[in-house]
């Protein structure tokens, strides 16, 4: 019978919330799963993973894994999968997962289903559904190999809550160094410091497009602050430098599904829709009544955003 090795992602000594989406995947398969907490500080972070129903929690804690470099992580993940009898490796499709998982797949000779939106159990094997063509179609896929590697879309697998119990924690072994690892040097981490919630975790997202120009932050910040929202952006806003690149939502940016997504001065190109049309409620503010964003918006307001957004802030303050 199959069993799953779930790779947790560490950040600042804690397991990232995005990892909880992989737990949901594992639970949906009904297969036994173990969690690999790998990275510098894994030992202490492992405690955060013991109450989720894993068979065991394996830790690999080493200063060598202090920076996320795919060539350093992939060998250990692959060796633990092989040595522990795990035939399915799952990670969340964060930039870390997307960087590392394919290298693990190549090491295992595994097929790799990336960025899946759902999983089904069909006659003892797993079926994966993945969005293609910017979410304009879904493909149903199966992997034909003994080992399988999967990354799951954070927006489609709700974060798992603890289920009680206490998994045993045991140390795993750091694999031999990859020759490729000697040829990549970690130089710097440029972390955007922000008090706002992460785009992948926010319940509300206020997102701005090219129309905001240099007033991007000036117009959106008060609204985001009031709503406790994360700030997102269209590609055009990022390309023009109005918003930093890590805020981009879309086919090739972050894929999000908050309770409320407010699209402001965004036309609604298919590449943008691909990243947000799974949101529960969508609001669009755009001065062009024919903008495609209105085709997916639950509530559309045809207005000049420079007037409407400050008005919205005032109105919300009244209700607060």
């Amino acid at each position: 019978m199959s069993s799953i090795l779930l790779v947790a992602e560490l950040h600042d000594g804690h397991v990232r919330r995005s990892t909880h989406s992989s737990i949901t995947f594992a639970r949906q398969t009904g297969l036994p799963f173990s969690i690999l907490v790998i990275g510098h500080g894994a030992q202490s972070a492992a405690a955060e993973m013991v109450a989720y129903g894993a068979t065991k929690v394996v830790t690999v804690d080493d200063a060598y894994l202090g920076h996320v470099v795919a060539e350093r992580f992939a060998p250990t993940i692959a060796e633990i999968a092989k040595g522990g009898g795990f035939d399915i490796v799952v990670m969340t499709a964060s930039s870390f997962g997307k960087d590392v998982a394919p290298r693990v797949a190549a090491k295992l000779g595994a097929g790799y289903a990336s960025d899946i939106s759902s999983v089904s159990v069909e006659g003892g094997s797993l079926g994966y559904k993945r969005p293609v063509f910017a979410g304009n179609a879904f493909a149903n896929a199966k992997l034909t190999t003994p080992f399988q590697v999967v990354t799951v879309r954070q927006s489609e697998f709700a974060p798992a809550e603890p289920s009680g119990g206490s998994s045993s924690v045991e140390p795993g072994t750091l694999a031999a160094k990859d020759p490729a690892a000697d040829r990549v040097e970690f130089v710097a981490l440029g972390e955007a410091k922000s008090e706002r919630p992460d785009l992948g975790e926010a319940k509300v997202i206020v997102s701005g497009g090219r129309a905001l120009k240099e007033k991007f932050a000036e117009v959106l910040d008060p609204l985001a602050g009031l709503l406790g929202a994360a700030v997102g952006a269209s590609r055009a806003a990022c390309d023009a430098g109005y918003a930093p690149p890590e805020l981009q939502v879309g086919q090739t940016g972050r894929v999000v599904a908050p309770k409320l997504y407010v699209a402001i001065g965004i036309s609604g190109a298919i590449q943008h829709l691909a990243g947000m049309k799974g949101s529960k409620t969508i609001v669009a503010i755009n001065k062009d009544a024919d903008a495609p964003i209105f085709q997916v918006a639950d509530y559309g307001l045809v207005a000049d955003l420079f007037v409407a957004v400050p008005e919205l802030v005032n109105e919300l303050k009244k209700h607060a």
Binding site: L143, F294, V302
Partner: peptide, 23 residues
């Protein structure tokens, strides 16, 4: 092939919403 694609399908459509007149 290591990945075998079976059926493709279209995504569920999103119901068109309404336009509001004021903030």
């Amino acid at each position: 092939l290591k990945i075998a694609y079976a059926a493709f399908e279209l995504p569920p459509g999103r119901k068109a919403g309404i336009k509001v007149k004021t903030v």
